[in-house]
C-alpha cells in the first residue's frame, strides 16, 4: 500500500474528491493556505502601509534572525541532551537513572524565565567570585556572551522535557522488539540504534515537533537576558516610537509565520515517518 491509499482508507478517489479536505493532499493545501495567508497579510501591511510596518520590519529583522538561530541551535542541543537523558533514564544502572531523574525533577520545577535569569545574571558573578578566591584569571574575567548563555539556559531547561519525551518513546517500544533483536545476537547498543530508537522516534515525532514550536515561542523569554531577539527588538522599537499596537501586531504575525511554517514541516515529517504502521 502506498501512503496515499493508507491515509484515505479504501474509499474510491471519485468519492473523496467530492468531500473537501478528505484527500490527504487537500489537507496539506488547507494548512499551507493559512501559512501563506499570514505571509500575504504581512506583505500587504509592509507594502501598502510602509509607515509604520516597513519601519518596524526593518528594525526587528535582525531580531528574527537571532530568534531563529537561538531556537534552532538550542533545539539541536536539546535533542542531543534528550537522547542521552532518555537513554540514561532507561538504563540498567540505577545511579545513572537516579541522577537523570533528579535533573529532570529539579529543572521541571523551576520556571524557565528564572533559569534564564540565573544563568545570565547569577552565574557569571559567582564564577568571577570563585576566580577571585582562587586567583584564577580566566575565571575572574568570565563574561559570557548573552546569546550563548541563553542557548545554555534553553538547552538545560528544555533538555529535561525532551528527556521525558525520549524516555516515553523508548518505553513505548514493545519488549518483544528488543528480545527479537537480542536473540539475533545484536548487542544492547545495536538493538537501541537499529530497532528501539527508530521506532521510538516515529512515536515521539509529534511530541518533538511540539517541543520545537514551544521552544520557538519560549525563546522570547531570552529578551529579558540581553539577547536582541524578535521580542526585544519589538520592545526597543516601541519605546523609541510609542506605536505599540502596530509593533506588536507585526511581531505577533512574524512569530505566527515561524510557528505555522514549523508546524507544516513537522506534519510533513510525521507523514513520512508513518511507513510500516
Amino acid at each position: 500500500m502506498d501512503s496515499k491509499s493508507r491515509l484515505a482508507g479504501n474509499a474510491p478517489e471519485k468519492i473523496l474528491s467530492k468531500i473537501p479536505g478528505a484527500r490527504p493532499e487537500d489537507r496539506i493545501d488547507a494548512w499551507w493556505g493559512l501559512f501563506f495567508a499570514v505571509v500575504g497579510l504581512v506583505l500587504v501591511l509592509v507594502l501598502f502601509w510602509p509607515d509604520p510596518y516597513r519601519r518596524i520590519l526593518n528594525f526587528v529583522a535582525d531580531g528574527i534572525l537571532i530568534t531563529v538561530v537561538v531556537t534552532v541551535v538550542s533545539f539541536v542541543l536539546v535533542v542531543v541532551v534528550g537522547l542521552l537523558g532518555g537513554l540514561a533514564r532507561t538504563a540498567r544502572n540505577r545511579y545513572l537513572r537516579s541522577f537523570i531523574s533528579l535533573y529532570v525533577e529539579i529543572i521541571r520545577g523551576i520556571p524557565l524565565l528564572v533559569q534564564l535569569i540565573f544563568w545570565y545574571y547569577a552565574l557569571p558573578p559567582a564564577i568571577q567570585g570563585l576566580g577571585n578566591l582562587l586567583s584564577i584569571v580566566a575565571l575572574q574575567n568570565f563574561a559570557p556572551d548573552p546569546v550563548i548563555m541563553a542557548i545554555v539556559g534553553l538547552t538545560i531547561g528544555y533538555g529535561a522535557y525532551m528527556t521525558e519525551v525520549v524516555r516515553a518513546g523508548i518505553q513505548s517500544v514493545p519488549k518483544g522488539q528488543v528480545e527479537a533483536a537480542r536473540s539475533l545476537g545484536l548487542t544492547y547498543r545495536m538493538a537501541m540504534q537499529h530497532v528501539v530508537l527508530p521506532q521510538a522516534f516515529r512515536t515521539i515525532l509529534p511530541a518533538i515537533g511540539n517541543e520545537f514550536i514551544t521552544l520557538l515561542k519560549d525563546s522570547s523569554l531570552v529578551s529579558v537576558v540581553a539577547v536582541a531577539d524578535l521580542t526585544r527588538r519589538g520592545r526597543e522599537f516601541m519605546s523609541m516610537t510609542f506605536i505599540p499596537f502596530q509593533t506588536w501586531i507585526l511581531v505577533a504575525l512574524l512569530y505566527l509565520i515561524l510557528t505555522l511554517f514549523s508546524a507544516r514541516v513537522v506534519s510533513w515529517l510525521e507523514k513520512k515517518a508513518q511507513v510500516g504502521r
Partner: peptide
C-alpha cells in the same frame, strides 16, 4: 528464536 508474537521489526 521464533516468538509467539512474531516480533518482526515494524519499521
Amino acid at each position: 528464536m521464533v516468538f509467539q508474537q512474531f516480533n518482526l521489526f515494524s519499521h
